[in-house]
Amino acid sequence: MKRIIAVCLLASIVLVSNAQKKVSLFNGKDLAGWNIHGTEKWYVENGEMICESGPDKQYGYLSTEKNYKNFILTLKFKQEANGNSGVFFRSSIDGVKISGWQAEVAPLGQHTGGIYESYGRGWLIQPKPEDEKYLKEGDWNDYKIEVKGDEVTTWLNGHQMIYIKDAKIGEGVGFIALQIHDGGGIKVRWKDIKIEEL
């Protein structure tokens, strides 16, 4: 009996420890812990973070105040009004010129889950055409991005979209950022943004 109790206690400690590793990057109330770059709109509504095209119809970014190297990032996004966006990692910015890597968020057939290198080599990897169907347009999507050393893996709604091993990514340092694309007429909602550092 004592052994069973000890095993149960140990299992509880492991579960609590794993839960504590995940940290919320968005408090559901305001943009505390984030920095706005550009003139596009970023605001909070009903516990959701929203990015929306502004009058300039340019690129806009919302970056974490902290840098992250190795991590598992999970979040939910919902695309409205075009929805071209993305999640940057190990990135830096000068004005609205961002350098780093983007896990794409885009309309159907435009490579959500792929990795794009900004102001560098461009597309590094795109999902297979048959995997594009896992995007749910006009509904909430679960997105998971794992960045560890020189390896990146993305999942969309539980389905692995890409895996890449790249030396340049391995050397990268910087923050995580959400993007709103230029061109106007774009709106994306975000929530449940959590990170586990590895």
Score class of each variant (00 low, 15 high):
residue 45 E to G: 03
residue 60 G to Y: 06
residue 67 N to A: 13
residue 94 D to G: 02
residue 110 Q to L: 14
residue 143 Y to N: 02
residue 160 Q to D: 11
residue 52 E to D: 06
residue 33 G to S: 04
residue 108 L to K: 14
residue 14 V to E: 04
residue 187 K to A: 05
residue 31 L to N: 03
residue 150 D to Q: 10
residue 144 K to W: 05
residue 189 R to M: 10
residue 83 G to A: 00
residue 94 D to Q: 06
residue 3 R to A: 14
residue 122 G to D: 04
residue 41 K to C: 04
residue 44 V to N: 05
residue 151 E to S: 13
residue 73 L to K: 14
residue 94 D to W: 00
residue 27 N to T: 05
residue 94 D to M: 03
residue 174 G to M: 11
residue 170 G to Y: 13
residue 56 D to T: 15
residue 4 I to E: 13
residue 30 D to G: 08
residue 190 W to C: 02
residue 194 K to S: 12
residue 89 F to D: 04
residue 122 G to V: 05
residue 164 I to E: 08
residue 20 Q to S: 14
residue 118 S to G: 07
residue 10 L to T: 10
residue 87 V to R: 02
residue 106 A to I: 02
residue 103 A to W: 03
residue 108 L to D: 11
residue 86 G to Q: 00
residue 68 Y to R: 10
residue 123 W to F: 09
residue 93 I to D: 03
residue 115 I to N: 07
residue 17 S to Q: 09
residue 86 G to L: 00
residue 27 N to K: 05
residue 20 Q to A: 14
residue 89 F to N: 03
residue 118 S to L: 12
residue 131 D to T: 07
residue 30 D to C: 07
residue 30 D to Y: 03
residue 105 V to Y: 01
residue 96 V to S: 07
residue 166 D to V: 12
residue 124 L to R: 05
residue 3 R to M: 09
residue 113 G to K: 08
residue 28 G to V: 01
residue 134 Y to E: 12
residue 28 G to F: 01
residue 16 V to F: 10
residue 55 P to V: 11
residue 46 N to W: 03
residue 178 L to C: 06
residue 120 G to Y: 04
residue 69 K to Y: 13
residue 85 S to N: 02
residue 123 W to G: 01
residue 20 Q to Y: 13
residue 177 A to W: 05
residue 133 K to R: 14
residue 116 Y to F: 13
residue 100 G to W: 01
residue 72 I to M: 15
residue 147 V to H: 00
residue 129 P to K: 01
residue 78 K to T: 04
residue 74 T to C: 12
residue 79 Q to C: 06
residue 140 W to T: 03
residue 81 A to I: 00
residue 175 F to S: 12
residue 143 Y to W: 05
residue 194 K to D: 12
residue 186 I to H: 10
residue 58 Q to V: 12
residue 60 G to T: 08
